[in-house]
Simulated scan of single mutants.
Amino acid sequence: MTDPLTNLSAFQELAARRLAGFSHIAVPDAPGMRRAGVVICVVPGADGPSVILIKRAYRGRNAGQWGLPGGRMDSGETPEQAALRELHEELGLTAGPGDVLGRLDDFPATSGFAISPIVVALPEPGPLQPSPDEVHSVHHVSLARLAADDTPRWVPQLEGGRMLQMKLGPGWLVHAPTGAMLWQFREVVLLGREVRVADFVQPDWTSK
């Protein structure tokens, strides 16, 4: 059997099947809530299929933070449409509805956004063209790294609960919201476990 952690076609088949059987939770509308769509975009990588992460440009909202390609939904857009539009605007990658494998839970961020993660696979993504206005740098994390036992770290908090850190490389720790969405992707899609993430603790600086 081909390993979906090392073979993109096998990943696409597995992800489509598992996401089809996953009932995502949508955050209901509320006064003042804003909505965003982001893409968990799987592409070929040097170490096997990889997810694209970005470090945001050092200006504006979320300056310098780790994130997934994506952004605010425009009026009349679906989360999928917003996520794919932002993928093109931020990285120059074109994806259509046929590239979408499914959707994970909305994440209610402390910034006031409900973030909808859309899972996409691009076997032939073409060259990246990062927008300097929005993207400081582009990084890849392999599916094998995401699935590794030592990737999630749980840090106890003084006020109770635990904060998730996704250890994606040396000195590379990603927290909620992005870390929470990557953890749910890991658990649901890569490992076949049904988990929820809406109550994950977020660092104070993610609300700015």
Rank of each mutant, 00 (worst) to 15 (best):
R18Y: 12
V38L: 11
A63E: 02
G179F: 01
S207F: 04
Q165T: 10
G169Q: 03
D133E: 15
V197S: 07
L168R: 10
V100M: 04
T151R: 09
V189Q: 00
E134D: 15
P31L: 01
T2G: 10
A82L: 07
G64H: 04
A82D: 04
L191N: 00
A36G: 06
A36Y: 09
G160Q: 00
Q129H: 15
D29A: 11
G96S: 05
A198P: 06
M166C: 12
L164T: 04
L19K: 05
P170K: 12
V189E: 00
T2R: 14
P170M: 05
I40N: 11
S137I: 08
L93R: 10
E77I: 01
W172A: 11
V51F: 05
P177S: 11
M163Q: 05
R17L: 09
G96K: 03
G92L: 07
E90R: 03
G48H: 11
Q184N: 06
L93N: 04
M73D: 09
V195T: 15
D105P: 08
E86N: 05
M166V: 10
L128W: 06
D29T: 12
L101S: 07
S137C: 11
P31T: 14
R35A: 13
T151Y: 08
L19R: 04
I25K: 10
V51K: 13
L128D: 05
R186K: 10
L143Y: 03
V195I: 15
G71S: 04
P97K: 02
V27E: 12
V100S: 05
G169L: 03
L146Q: 12
V42W: 04
G160P: 01
E89T: 03
